[in-house]
Design a protein around this nucleic acid. Structure first.
Lengths: 214, 214
DNA sequence: ATTTTATAGACAGACAGTCGGTCTATAAAC
DNA sequence: GTTTATAGACCGACTGTCTGTCTATAAAAT
């Protein structure tokens, strides 16, 4: 007895199943059979809707990415929020909020190198423009001073994604704290911000970050 | 008629074969059968020496990495070379020289995500300490001024690896030139160097870089 | 001669994708 | 209204490739 569904419905069911499995076992650790079972469909159905396993991953990344960037973009364009707070909230939306907890799950799976690469690329295309808008407002208000806001933001985002990514050799608490301090100092230099201003943002970041996880 | 060889000899033959194939077709695109054929050995021999396909890759990365970092380290510790030139030559040894042309080949293969990740990790562990030594000398000589030489170097290396990596969306010549200019400016800020000093280094870098490829 | 090391290749099971066929909904023809 | 044809969604057996395992054995060492 076969069950017919709208293509969009079925596609999302497959993506839902894949999302859960990739997060749990990684892309490489998830077989198409796992997906079939979880979505309760046959092999031919899967390949009717997606042309390959990698196609499923690409669709999933696109879906997740859209969610995350949309949330951050709304925050970034809300001129009623002060610049530093906006920056903080956008970063939270991108890295720590419940929505992007999914991204972190994937990134840290050992069998997810390809997916990591694609996620990273999507993030690098999407995040700096959003955050640079905030930096430009900060420049207008005299909080920052750099002729290259985009490139500064790009550098900071790349670094955050790499060094504070749990995938890298684990940092002890004191190592992490030292790195955060150094990073704040370096970010102040890059953006031409007043010394100490990013340290304060970082403190808020850590507080909010921890609250979110309690 | 079987041919016996010293384990180290045989191991290196397998690695040589793998090195060529991974560069040509990527890790995922290379089957163990390809390696068997190229090294003229049987499957059992391969698994006698290496415990898995991934083990071969790990050994290969280690081999290449050792070569590259050794060359750069020699340059970095040669106190007779002026700081800026030492920095330039070490960077060349790490990124552009013939030895590391091999690394670039791997990094840009579409089926090499896992290998990229491992190479990147190895590089991030090996490169910043070497270059930071040079920065420290520069601080001693008053060329640089930063309380966080290591973290600055780390940031710069991460950025160089990511943004100027050909794997990222291709940059036009003018885009690249603009990015190099912005990067030089930002590096000057990070290291507390005199404005314009890194732009000059970059010019040398481009010249030398181009000559190497002609 | 016996033991150890290195080599060979047949075999097994998992995997992603293919292919031929079936089923369902629906429009068109009667 | 009923019948027929069509489109497209679905099914599952099958295929070829892949990595790793296992058994046999040649060559070297003792």
């Amino acid at each position: 007895m076969r069950i017919l569904k709208e293509p969009e419905v079925r596609k999302n069911e497959i993506l839902d199943a894949a999302e859960e499995l990739f997060a749990q076992k990684g892309f490489d650790g998830t077989s198409t059979n796992n997906i079939l079972e979880k979505a309760s469909i046959a092999r031919g159905t899967l390949y009717y809707h997606f042309k390959s396993k990698e196609d499923i991953m690409d669709a999933l990344i696109e879906r997740i990415n859209a969610r995350i960037l949309t949330a951050a973009e709304e925050i970034a364009s809300d001129k009623n929020i002060p610049v530093f707070e906006r920056l903080l909230r956008a970063v939270l939306a991108l890295n720590v909020s419940e929505q992007s907890a999914n991204v972190l799950e994937y990134v840290h799976k050992p069998q997810n190198a390809l997916m990591n690469q694609k996620i990273h690329r999507a993030m690098m295309a999407g995040i700096p423009p959003i955050l640079t808008e905030i930096i430009r407002d900060g420049i207008q208000e005299g909080l920052f001073d750099t002729p290259f806001p985009y490139e500064c933001m790009e550098m900071v985002v790349v670094y955050l994604n790499t060094i504070f990514d749990e995938d890298m050799p684990a940092l002890s608490d004191s190592e992490r704290s030292a790195k955060v301090k150094a990073f704040a100092f370096n970010a102040e230099r890059l953006f031409g911000a007043q010394e100490g201003s990013f340290v304060n943002v970082m403190a808020m970041f850590n507080e909010k970050g921890q609250n979110d996880h309690d």
